[in-house]
Amino acid sequence: MIQIFGTAKCKVTRAAQRFFADRGIKVQFVELREKGLSKGELASVARAVGGMRALYDESSPRVKERGLQHLGPSEARLAELLAEDTLLLRTPIVRDGARAAVGAAEATWKAFAEAAKGKP
């Protein structure tokens, strides 16, 4: 099943939900304000998208709130930060098993949708 991790307030997250709904594909939505990714899920998604840095939203208000905008955290420190504060993640994270996409990645969503349609 396709999972979408994001926040209800995020326009791109809502666009991802609409994208799959328009194609009749059920998704599991995970509200990051309530529940985050486990360390294992975070590591798996990071591998799929090219590392923790791809998941870190440097332009998020949360980064500024926490005073992290001038930090160049290492991958290990990023993993810690993202595990403890899910609002530092770029959204949406759309996950289909071991495959994942971050942000507005409509081409990848389309591939996930086509694969989902082929599943019983």
Rank of each mutant, 00 (worst) to 15 (best):
M1P: 07
M1L: 08
M1C: 06
M1A: 07
I2P: 03
I2C: 07
Q3D: 01
I4W: 01
G6A: 04
T7P: 01
A8Y: 13
A8D: 14
K9S: 15
K9R: 15
K9Y: 09
K11W: 13
V12L: 01
T13H: 06
T13S: 00
R14E: 06
R14Y: 02
R14N: 04
A15M: 12
Q17D: 02
R18S: 10
R18W: 07
F19H: 08
D22S: 14
D22H: 15
R23G: 04
K26N: 11
Q28K: 14
Q28G: 11
Q28W: 10
V30L: 04
V30D: 05
V30I: 08
L32R: 04
R33F: 03
R33D: 04
E34H: 11
E34K: 11
K35F: 00
G36N: 00
G36Y: 00
G36M: 03
L37P: 01
L37E: 01
L37M: 11
S38T: 15
S38P: 03
K39S: 12
K39I: 00
G40R: 14
G40E: 14
A43D: 09
S44P: 03
S44V: 02
S44N: 09
S44Q: 13
A46I: 05
R47S: 10
R47K: 10
R47G: 05
A48L: 06
V49W: 03
G50N: 01
G51E: 03
M52A: 09
M52D: 02
A54E: 14
A54M: 13
A54Q: 13
L55N: 00
L55Q: 05
Y56R: 10
D57I: 03
E58P: 06
E58R: 15
E58A: 13
S59H: 01
S59V: 06
P61A: 09
P61C: 00
R62I: 02
V63I: 05
K64S: 05
E65N: 00
R66S: 03
R66M: 12
R66Y: 03
G67K: 07
L68Q: 06
L71D: 10
G72N: 15
G72Y: 12
G72K: 15
G72V: 14
G72W: 09
P73L: 15
P73I: 15
E75G: 08
A76G: 07
R77H: 13
R77E: 12
R77Y: 13
L78M: 06
L78Y: 05
L78D: 01
L78K: 06
A79P: 01
A79L: 06
L82Y: 00
T86N: 11
L87D: 00
L88N: 05
L88G: 02
R90H: 05
R90S: 00
R90D: 03
T91Y: 04
P92R: 05
P92F: 00
D96F: 15
D96S: 14
G97T: 10
G97F: 10
A98F: 14
R99F: 11
R99Y: 10
V102I: 07
V102N: 05
G103T: 12
G103V: 13
A104I: 09
A105T: 08
E106P: 07
A107Y: 12
T108R: 14
W109G: 02
A111D: 09
A111Y: 08
F112K: 13
A113Y: 06
A113K: 06
A115H: 07
A115L: 09
K117I: 07
G118Y: 12
P120F: 10
P120E: 12
